[in-house]
Write a protein that binds this DNA or RNA. Structure first.
Length: 269
DNA sequence: CTGAGATCCTGTCTGC
DNA sequence: TGCAGACAGGATCTCA
């Protein structure tokens, strides 16, 4: 489910809990992508959240002396629910309870995770991450550096979180369409001009998607219960067999790096 | 070091 | 209907 725009949307929805004190923590299932730390409940309960932010696809919740990091994996999401509402859903794995409301972590496939850490920026999963695509460091020069010696398809490069973070399967296909570059183009064949187009397209697509609250294909909901409306702006993702908006050619699907990839072979070279 | 492929898990949809 | 198989927004691990 969640790529950078969906995670960012989720972070904005739970931001209101900054400066609130956690009054209870309940972990129903510790068997997520990684086992949830057994001491997490007692280490964060009764502590105040000082900051909620995002790094790549991780949600960082800072307390006075430590952090928890959440990753939503493929199917995870958070939902805010009033404490007097006792409705639970299948696959609700954790509850973070505040005075009036709680944040519930739900994840059907359990590819998501919850980590406890003193400093996320020293955490092994965070340390290996590449740069943020919406930062100034991400530009044509950076992308060119990353591509110029690579024999991999550009789509694989874009989705490699060690190089660029936050871009997943939807936004990789969409950015490549916007920049008219084929997902199959080999990294080293990209010119600086291509990298300029592509880096700009990535920023544009991600910013627009954030503005629309992310993309809901089927089960992404932000923590406030809203779905994301970027789906109506998708040009190629999930549209194989349909006509390209730009040239009326048929959009095709192809597996690249074990992931479905959508493109217009007439517009993209 | 690189890169390809398997793998974790549950649910839904398609085709026979 | 039933059932097998493919596929789904991610990312790590193993092996060549």
């Amino acid at each position: 489910m969640p790529e950078l725009p969906e995670v960012e949307t989720t972070v904005r929805a739970i931001n209101k809990f900054e400066n609130e004190k956690l009054v209870a923590v309940i972990i129903h299932n510790r068997n997520l992508r990684w086992k949830v730390d057994k001491t997490i409940e007692k280490k964060i309960v009764n502590k105040k959240i000082t900051k909620i932010s995002r790094r790549a696809k991780y949600i960082l919740i800072q307390f006075e002396d430590l952090y928890i990091m959440l990753h939503l994996g493929m199917s995870g999401n958070l939902r805010i629910q009033r404490n007097n509402n006792n409705h639970f859903k299948k696959h609700d794995h954790a509850e973070f309870v505040f005075k009036d409301e709680k944040i519930i972590f739900n994840d059907v496939r359990r590819f998501g995770s919850i980590h406890l850490t003193k400093n996320p920026f020293d955490h092994e999963l965070i340390k290996v991450l590449g740069i943020e695509p919406l930062s100034n460091q991400f530009n044509e020069d950076y992308l060119y550096e990353v591509c110029k010696n690579s024999n991999l398809e550009i789509k694989k490069i874009l989705m490699d979180q060690r190089k660029i973070v936050g871009v997943g399967n939807i936004y990789a296909s969409e950015s490549l369409f916007l920049s008219r570059i084929s997902p199959e183009r080999i990294g080293k064949k990209l010119s600086i001009k291509d990298c300029s187009n592509l880096s700009n397209s990535i920023k544009k697509v991600l910013k627009e998607a954030i503005k629309m609250g992310g993309t809901t294909l089927k089960d992404f909901y932000s923590a406030d219960g809203n779905q994301g409306y970027f789906k109506i702006k998708l040009n190629v993702y999930g549209k194989d067999g349909q006509l390209c908006n730009s040239c009326n050619n048929i959009i095709t699907k192809k597996i690249i790096g074990q992931r479905s990839t959508f493109m217009c072979s007439k517009c993209q070279n």
